[in-house]
Amino acid sequence: MAVDITLSVNGVPYPLTVDPHASLLHTVRGDVGLTGSKEGCDDSECGACMMLVDGRPVNSCSYLAVQADGSDVTTVEGLSDGETLAPLQEAFLTRGGVQCGFCTPGMLVSATALLDRSPNPSEDEIRTAVSGNLCRCTGYDGIVKAIAAVAAERAAQG
C-alpha cells in the first residue's frame, strides 16, 4: 500500500506517494527528479548516494523514503545555488578532487557532514570520515586536501 509522505529536499517540500520499500535514493532521483545523487552499489558500500537527513549523513540507497517523512533532506544540488559554488565544491575543483565525478556528489555531502560536526578536523579524521565514500579515480589525495583547505580557510576567517 503506497504511503503519503512529505520530503523537504533542499528546502523545497515535496508531497509524495511512495511504495513503503522505495529507497530515499530512488525517490529523490525518480519522483523528485534530482539526479545528482548517484547509485554505485545499492547496498551502502560506496557512498555515491549519500545525502543529509536532518543533518546526518545517510546512504540513501539503503534508507527507506518513508523513514524520511517530514525530514529535511539535503543533496549535492542543495550545497549551493549552482551558480556560486560552495567552498567545498570550489576546493574539490581546484585541488584535483574531481576526476570522473561519480563519487563527487556523495563525497561532497560526506565532507559537509564532517565539517558541520567537526570544523577543524585532522587529516586522519578527514580520511576516516570519507572512508565510506569510495573513489577509484583520485586516490583521495585531492579530496583530502580540498576538505583540509576549506577547514583551514574557515578557521582563518574565525
Binding site: E77, L79, S80, F92, L93, T94, R95, V98, P105
Partner: peptide, 20 residues
C-alpha cells in the same frame, strides 16, 4: 592552478548527466 576542467562545475553541482 590556471586551468579548471570544463566539466568540473556540472560535476560538483550534481547537474551533470551520466547515462543512468
Amino acid at each position: 592552478r590556471a586551468f579548471l576542467r570544463p566539466d568540473g562545475k556540472e560535476k560538483v553541482t550534481g547537474l551533470g548527466r551520466y547515462t543512468a
